[in-house]
Amino acid sequence: MQFGAFTALDGVDIEVEPGEVHSLIGPNGAGKTTLLNTIAGDVKPTRGRIVFDNEDVTGLLPHMCVQKGISRTFQIPNVMPGIKVWESVWLGINSKAKISWHPFVGAKYADAIARKVRELCQIVGLEESMDELAGNLSHGDQKILEIAMAMSLDGSLLLLDEPTQGVSPGEIDTFMSIIKKVSETKTVLMVEHNMDVVLGVSDRVTVLDHGRVIANSTPSEVVNDEQVRQVYLGTTDV
């Protein structure tokens, strides 16, 4: 992946197994978010291939990637401020339901979809604030809404871009339990800086530095890897 003369991702070869929670870590500018953007179709790779579910999805537009089952969240909460929480989740469910073009919809369908919306909000713990405007939520709740919106798309692969960034330490546990709950039914690929979260939920960790993969193994092995300690973890104890 190149932006002009700058190579953001250089020969990254990474495999995410179905059902696992796979974390991407690395110093700032290592290319973690670029990798997510490339997989989600937000940027087109200059070289290389992305294979999802035995299908080549390289260069598909973002909305097509969603239809294939790849959904994502954003690092900086990217919600629709003037729209209610339940409507944000509703939009995701509706996008899969193939009736989003229907100008007039019957009550029966509306009930079924409303039940799904409520279920999803309960899973992530947002049912109290379903009638709030998304823009009025706290930062932490907006990050949770991000996850709920990605889940509402019912894809099999979830790309989480720093789900706990800017979240208060007290809320970290909530996020970890949400991610664990999500991973019961979906494959998760996430970029994360908080090592407690990474070590707590990941099955596998990939370390990126300057656009290259420098390690790819289980969390405990990665922590003990000499090269990783040098470029990323420094000398701090983990």
Partner: peptide, 22 residues
């Protein structure tokens, strides 16, 4: 209607609506 809700969502944040598969 669903169509109208998608319009409002596009007004609020077009990029996010793309990422929701529209």
């Amino acid at each position: 209607s669903p169509l109208g809700k998608v319009w409002v969502a596009i007004r609020e944040n077009e990029q996010r609506v793309v990422s929701l598969g529209y």
